[in-house]
């Protein structure tokens, strides 16, 4: 029945990682509810907001990289992870 969804290993890993991030963020939120704050992003945000901004901007960074350069996507992925973490920490 799941045949038509055409799962592949990379996409399964991708969704697994997203699910893992969401679950751990939820647990973190329940253990230690976060307070809204203002970092280098011009609006006040919560942790969840920063995560969303980070993921969405990472997706666009990937697309721009594909459209304009020939760089290997592993480099882009690495850069995006650094960006995501710094966003969560300082954003």
């Amino acid at each position: 029945m799941l045949n038509w969804m055409a799962w592949t290993q990379p996409t399964a890993l991708f969704f697994g990682a997203i699910a893992l991030i969401l679950i751990s963020m939820t647990v973190w939120e329940i253990k230690r509810p976060c307070v809204e704050r203002k970092g280098f992003i011009p609006i006040t945000t919560t942790r969840g907001d920063r995560l969303f901004i980070g993921l969405l901007s990472s997706a666009f960074i990937h697309l721009i990289a594909i459209a304009t350069t020939e760089v290997s996507l592993y480099w882009v992925l690495g850069a995006c992870i650094v960006w995501l973490i710094s966003l969560l920490r300082f954003g």
Partner: peptide, 16 residues
């Protein structure tokens, strides 16, 4: 949405 992501990285001829 997941299906779309899966399709987007493959060349699909038929079910199998």
């Amino acid at each position: 949405l997941m299906t779309v992501v899966n399709y987007s990285v493959q060349d699909i001829f038929d079910q199998n």
